[in-house]
């Protein structure tokens, strides 16, 4: 939903503004209206939903849109439903809704597990699925979740919509393929039989961004892993994913040794940087450890009861 945002590094010269710069405000009540407003105001306008990423950046004036287009009235994007063999999640679904959705949880326990560790309960009441994805923060959890689930996102513009695989959605930290006159409207996840999923995250404290987090999904048929997804957050994995690790899983029977190898690959192929959450060696270790845990739990969920 949001366009590109500058990368926050230090508080630096933008210290202590803490109130947004002047901005115009428009409220859209339908998608058509959103596109009209985006067209009218051009690239200096920004769509705002939950606001939990954009407003803090506006307060320190790292983001200075000229116009805010409030889409909180777009109830048409607030849905979780099954359609065409897919779980379809509207962009305006709040984190709290996704977390407690029986429908999403029935197919993918990863949603509730990930949502339970995203920010805190009050923020989850407000923040949206679309907003999180479009913020494209490298530590953002849902990006890793949808990477693990190999989701597709729907990006809509005034005259057309397009679907983009999640692996092509992010173009870098804080940047996505969403164009200036487009918004993300939906995320789609294939419904999979015999699949299991799980999310693992370590944070310094509840509500902190992840030191590292791993989402996993496996589908098992005839005793073999036929599909695997591993999503990584906060470790600068390209497209939040670990393709090398996924590849060695597919076609093999699940075993502790296989999981171990995949987890090692995930740890090696990500690209974490040191910050106050931890040094690089610890983050790689964590990716390995959490990948192991997430995969094991996914596998046990994919296997039939008692297997």
């Amino acid at each position: 939903m949001f366009g590109p945002a500058p990368l926050a590094r230090t508080w630096g010269v933008k210290l202590n503004m803490q109130v947004p710069a002047p901005v115009e405000y428009e409220r859209a009540t339908s998608l058509t209206e959103v596109f009209d407003l985006l067209e009218r105001y051009g690239p200096e306008s920004r769509v705002i939903a939950g606001g939990h990423s954009l407003l803090p950046m506006m307060k320190i004036r790292l983001a200075r849109p000229e116009v805010l287009i409030d889409i909180n009235d777009l109830t048409e994007l607030d849905y979780i439903r099954i359609d065409g063999g897919e779980l379809r999640i509207g962009a305006m679904v709040r984190h709290a809704t996704l977390m407690s959705s029986p429908l999403a949880g029935e197919y993918y326990p990863i949603f509730a597990e990930a949502e339970a560790v995203i920010a805190d309960p009050i923020v989850r009441n407000r923040g949206t699925v679309g907003g999180s994805l479009c913020q494209a923060d490298p530590a953002e959890d849902l990006s890793a979740v949808f990477a693990a689930l190999k989701a597709t996102v729907v990006i809509s513009g005034k005259s057309s919509s397009r679907t983009v695989p999640i692996s092509e959605f992010h173009t870098g930290p804080y940047t996505t393929v969403v164009g200036p006159e487009e918004i993300l409207t939906e995320v789609r996840v294939h419904l999979r039989a015999n699949a299991g999923s799980a999310y693992e995250k370590v944070e310094r404290r509840l509500g902190d961004w992840a030191i590292a987090a791993v989402g996993a999904m496996v589908r098992i048929e005839g005793g073999l892993i036929v599909e695997a997804g591993i999503g990584l957050a906060a470790v600068r994995a390209e497209h939040y994913s670990a393709p090398e690790a996924e590849q060695i899983l597919v076609g093999s029977a699940p075993s502790d040794e296989l999981v171990e190898r995949a987890a090692s690959l995930a740890g090696e192929h990500c690209n974490p940087s040191a910050d106050q959450r931890g040094p690089v060696d610890y983050k790689r270790h964590l990716v390995k450890e959490l990948t192991t845990r997430a995969l094991k739990r996914s596998i046990s969920r994919a296997l039939p009861e008692g297997a």
Partner: peptide, 11 residues
């Protein structure tokens, strides 16, 4: 004693 610090101590 953050997770990183504890892990490093273990190392």
């Amino acid at each position: 004693l953050t997770p990183a610090q504890v892990w490093r101590a273990m190392q």
